[in-house]
Computed example of a mutant assay.
Amino acid sequence: MKYTYPFILFCVILLFACNSKKKPVAAGKPAATAQELPPELHTELYGNWVGDFVSITDGAPDYEDVARINIRLSRITAEGVEGRSVVKGNARPMKGTLALAGNTYSFVMDEPGSDRHDGRFEFSIVGDTLKGRWKAYKATAVTHPVKEFTLVKKPFLYSANLMLPEDWEYVDYENGRTQTELYTNEDGTVDTSINNVYRAASEEVYKLNGSANELTEKQLKNLKKLDLEIIRNTIFARHGYSFKSKGVRQFFDQVDWYVPVTNTIDGALTEVEQKNVTLLKRFEKYAQDNYDTFGR
């Protein structure tokens, strides 16, 4: 094949231009690397520390106001500590510092401050116990601005087979009513008796499992409203949902397997659980409860 001189000249120029775009790499020059993160320390402390969050009134514990709290430690470096508090339906990030003296790990952790319930946690870990105090940033914004807690490490593990204890009394002491009764004395006089009455759940709350099995209308149609509420909320409790309502928390805060880890369960429920929640809510709408007297 015969090539013309202009064509050959064009090819030479094009080859030179392509080669000129290639930049030589200096010998021995290392490639750019990502900025290294500080090494993590004391990772054995990571995880959920769970127990009672007790209000302090006039310098003494007020056991009428107790909730289960989870202090989760997720990152510890020489630069600081990161974690999260989960209690009463609130899940708040927190950051702080760690000081080590002997076998005592002392933490000061601050929540963001953008919520009226935010405050500062000061606590120590010795062995397998975390103990400390929380103070609200705005003492006048909350009913109980000081809390104390003693926690132990507890892993969270979802299981569809977790059930409520069978030997417990499931009485709704948080939503009682007063009931007035008239009675006639032997002498014919009439007196008035005023009693506190409460609704109580049946044994079905620890027999029916809304996570492992698809419930039927036949199983639910004769249940009391409280039964239906507890069975539904047990589904949420298995996923570590932190309940805001004290009326719900009273049934779960002392359950050994219950670990509050989140204030949202969006996308967490299985298909069976979603169907059961829908069915339970439908029956709750029309169910009734009986009220009776119960000792506390």
Rank of each mutant, 00 (worst) to 15 (best):
D227Q: 03
N161E: 15
W257F: 14
K221Y: 01
K138T: 13
Q274T: 13
E203P: 00
P61C: 09
V261T: 15
F123G: 00
V248H: 11
D110Q: 09
Y286G: 02
E40Y: 01
A31F: 11
I230P: 05
P165D: 12
R282H: 08
S242V: 01
E284C: 10
R92Y: 07
N161P: 08
R92S: 13
L215P: 04
D172A: 08
R232C: 06
R133K: 15
N196Y: 12
T293Q: 11
F252L: 12
A200R: 06
G247D: 06
Q179S: 14
K95Y: 03
G176R: 04
N185S: 12
E169M: 05
N70Q: 11
R72H: 12
E284Q: 14
T150D: 00
F236P: 02
D167A: 08
F283M: 14
V255R: 02
G80R: 13
S55N: 13
Q274L: 13
N290I: 06
S114Q: 14
Y173I: 02
R238T: 02
W257V: 01
Y286F: 09
V205M: 09
W257A: 01
R72L: 12
Y291A: 11
E181F: 11
K221L: 05
N48I: 03
I231N: 01
S20P: 01
P155L: 07
D187C: 13
F149D: 04
R92C: 06
A268W: 03
T4C: 10
L9R: 15
S211H: 00
K21W: 03
K285G: 10
T104G: 02
E79F: 05
F251S: 00
N19D: 07
G210Y: 00
T264K: 09
S202G: 12
W49S: 04
G96F: 06
V87T: 12
K2Q: 13
E166M: 09
P6F: 04
S85D: 05
D253P: 05
P112H: 04
E148Y: 00
E229L: 12
N103Y: 09
G51N: 08
